[in-house]
Measured scan of single mutants.
Amino acid sequence: TTVHVNGVTYHFPNPEEAKKFVDRVVKEAGLTVEVKGNQWDVE
């Protein structure tokens, strides 16, 4: 699973890890998340 955060790419072994990361980032920074298949874009 690939997560893009403001142009930076993070790779995770599974969607659960990616979701935990995204949830944390979104809570801390108040960002928006767009999910496209296995790819997350966070802005």
Rank of each mutant, 00 (worst) to 15 (best):
1 T>E: 04
1 T>Q: 06
1 T>K: 03
1 T>D: 03
1 T>Y: 13
1 T>A: 10
1 T>M: 08
1 T>P: 04
2 T>K: 05
2 T>P: 02
2 T>N: 04
2 T>H: 08
2 T>S: 10
2 T>Q: 07
2 T>Y: 13
2 T>W: 13
2 T>V: 12
3 V>D: 00
3 V>M: 03
3 V>T: 01
3 V>N: 00
3 V>H: 00
3 V>C: 03
4 H>W: 14
4 H>Y: 14
4 H>V: 14
4 H>R: 14
4 H>A: 08
4 H>D: 06
4 H>M: 14
4 H>T: 14
5 V>F: 13
5 V>M: 10
5 V>D: 00
5 V>S: 03
5 V>G: 00
5 V>P: 00
5 V>N: 02
5 V>L: 10
6 N>V: 02
6 N>W: 09
6 N>I: 02
6 N>M: 09
6 N>C: 04
6 N>Q: 06
6 N>G: 09
6 N>F: 10
6 N>A: 08
7 G>T: 02
7 G>Q: 02
7 G>E: 02
7 G>P: 00
7 G>L: 01
7 G>S: 03
7 G>R: 01
7 G>W: 01
7 G>C: 09
7 G>I: 03
7 G>N: 04
7 G>V: 00
7 G>A: 02
7 G>Y: 01
7 G>M: 02
8 V>K: 10
8 V>H: 08
8 V>M: 09
8 V>Q: 09
8 V>T: 08
8 V>F: 08
8 V>D: 05
8 V>W: 06
8 V>G: 03
8 V>Y: 09
8 V>S: 07
8 V>P: 00
8 V>A: 07
9 T>S: 10
9 T>K: 11
9 T>Q: 09
9 T>N: 06
9 T>V: 12
9 T>F: 08
9 T>I: 13
9 T>L: 11
9 T>W: 07
9 T>R: 07
9 T>M: 12
10 Y>T: 02
10 Y>C: 04
10 Y>A: 02
10 Y>K: 02
10 Y>M: 05
10 Y>F: 09
10 Y>D: 01
10 Y>V: 03
10 Y>Q: 02
10 Y>W: 05
10 Y>S: 01
10 Y>H: 07
10 Y>E: 01
10 Y>N: 01
10 Y>G: 01
11 H>Q: 05
11 H>P: 02
11 H>F: 13
11 H>Y: 13
11 H>S: 07
11 H>C: 15
11 H>V: 07
11 H>T: 08
11 H>W: 14
11 H>A: 04
12 F>A: 00
12 F>E: 00
12 F>W: 00
12 F>N: 00
12 F>T: 00
12 F>Q: 00
12 F>L: 01
12 F>V: 00
13 P>N: 12
13 P>Y: 06
13 P>A: 12
13 P>S: 11
13 P>F: 07
13 P>H: 09
13 P>K: 10
13 P>L: 12
13 P>V: 08
13 P>M: 10
14 N>Y: 03
14 N>V: 01
14 N>D: 11
14 N>I: 02
14 N>Q: 02
14 N>F: 03
14 N>C: 05
14 N>R: 01
14 N>W: 01
15 P>K: 10
15 P>M: 13
15 P>G: 08
15 P>A: 13
15 P>E: 14
15 P>L: 13
15 P>C: 09
15 P>T: 11
15 P>I: 13
15 P>H: 12
15 P>N: 11
15 P>Q: 11
15 P>V: 12
16 E>T: 06
16 E>M: 06
16 E>C: 03
16 E>P: 00
16 E>D: 10
16 E>I: 05
16 E>S: 06
16 E>H: 07
16 E>R: 03
16 E>K: 04
16 E>N: 05
17 E>H: 03
17 E>L: 05
17 E>M: 06
17 E>Y: 02
17 E>G: 01
17 E>C: 05
17 E>K: 01
17 E>F: 01
17 E>Q: 05
17 E>T: 05
18 A>K: 01
18 A>I: 01
18 A>L: 05
18 A>Q: 01
18 A>C: 05
18 A>P: 00
18 A>D: 01
18 A>G: 01
18 A>V: 02
19 K>D: 04
19 K>P: 00
19 K>A: 09
19 K>S: 08
19 K>Y: 09
19 K>V: 06
19 K>C: 07
19 K>T: 05
19 K>W: 12
19 K>E: 09
19 K>L: 09
19 K>G: 05
19 K>Q: 13
19 K>I: 07
20 K>V: 07
20 K>T: 05
20 K>E: 13
20 K>A: 12
20 K>S: 08
20 K>M: 07
20 K>G: 05
20 K>Q: 12
20 K>H: 09
20 K>D: 11
20 K>Y: 05
21 F>W: 06
21 F>E: 01
21 F>I: 00
21 F>Q: 00
21 F>A: 01
21 F>S: 00
21 F>Y: 03
21 F>H: 01
21 F>P: 01
21 F>R: 00
21 F>N: 00
21 F>M: 01
21 F>C: 02
22 V>R: 03
22 V>H: 06
22 V>N: 03
22 V>E: 04
22 V>P: 01
22 V>A: 07
22 V>M: 08
22 V>L: 10
22 V>K: 04
22 V>I: 12
23 D>M: 03
23 D>E: 09
23 D>I: 03
23 D>T: 03
23 D>Y: 03
23 D>G: 02
23 D>K: 02
23 D>P: 00
24 R>P: 02
24 R>Y: 14
24 R>F: 13
24 R>N: 11
24 R>E: 13
24 R>K: 13
24 R>I: 12
25 V>Q: 05
25 V>H: 05
25 V>K: 03
25 V>D: 03
25 V>P: 02
25 V>W: 10
25 V>A: 05
25 V>E: 04
25 V>R: 01
25 V>M: 12
26 V>D: 06
26 V>G: 09
26 V>F: 13
26 V>M: 13
26 V>Q: 12
26 V>I: 13
26 V>N: 09
26 V>A: 11
26 V>Y: 12
26 V>P: 04
26 V>T: 12
27 K>S: 10
27 K>D: 07
27 K>T: 10
27 K>I: 11
27 K>H: 10
28 E>D: 07
28 E>L: 05
28 E>T: 05
28 E>P: 07
28 E>K: 04
28 E>C: 08
28 E>N: 05
28 E>S: 04
28 E>G: 05
29 A>D: 11
29 A>M: 14
29 A>F: 15
29 A>G: 12
29 A>N: 11
29 A>R: 00
29 A>L: 15
29 A>I: 10
29 A>K: 03
29 A>E: 13
29 A>V: 10
30 G>L: 07
30 G>R: 00
30 G>C: 09
30 G>K: 03
30 G>S: 06
30 G>F: 06
30 G>V: 05
30 G>Q: 07
30 G>Y: 06
31 L>R: 02
31 L>K: 05
31 L>H: 09
31 L>V: 14
31 L>A: 12
32 T>L: 11
32 T>I: 13
32 T>G: 10
32 T>K: 06
32 T>Q: 09
32 T>R: 05
32 T>S: 11
33 V>C: 07
33 V>E: 14
33 V>M: 04
33 V>Y: 06
33 V>Q: 06
33 V>A: 10
34 E>W: 02
34 E>Q: 05
34 E>A: 08
34 E>G: 08
34 E>H: 06
34 E>S: 12
34 E>L: 04
34 E>C: 12
35 V>I: 15
35 V>C: 09
35 V>W: 11
35 V>R: 00
35 V>Y: 14
35 V>S: 04
35 V>G: 05
36 K>L: 15
36 K>C: 15
36 K>G: 15
36 K>D: 15
36 K>T: 15
36 K>N: 15
36 K>S: 15
36 K>R: 04
36 K>V: 15
37 G>V: 14
37 G>F: 14
37 G>I: 10
37 G>R: 02
37 G>E: 14
37 G>N: 11
37 G>Q: 09
37 G>T: 05
38 N>H: 07
38 N>R: 01
38 N>E: 15
38 N>Q: 11
38 N>Y: 05
38 N>T: 06
38 N>A: 05
38 N>G: 10
38 N>K: 03
38 N>M: 03
38 N>C: 15
38 N>S: 06
39 Q>H: 14
39 Q>D: 14
39 Q>C: 15
39 Q>E: 15
39 Q>L: 09
39 Q>N: 09
39 Q>V: 13
39 Q>T: 09
39 Q>Y: 14
39 Q>K: 08
40 W>H: 10
40 W>Y: 09
40 W>K: 05
40 W>G: 09
40 W>P: 08
40 W>T: 08
40 W>S: 08
40 W>A: 09
41 D>S: 09
41 D>H: 15
41 D>M: 14
41 D>I: 15
41 D>Y: 15
41 D>Q: 13
41 D>F: 15
41 D>G: 08
41 D>P: 08
42 V>R: 06
42 V>Q: 10
42 V>N: 10
42 V>A: 10
42 V>Y: 09
42 V>P: 09
42 V>W: 08
42 V>F: 08
42 V>D: 10
43 E>H: 14
43 E>D: 12
43 E>I: 15
43 E>N: 13
43 E>A: 12
43 E>K: 13
43 E>Q: 13
43 E>P: 10
43 E>Y: 13
43 E>V: 15
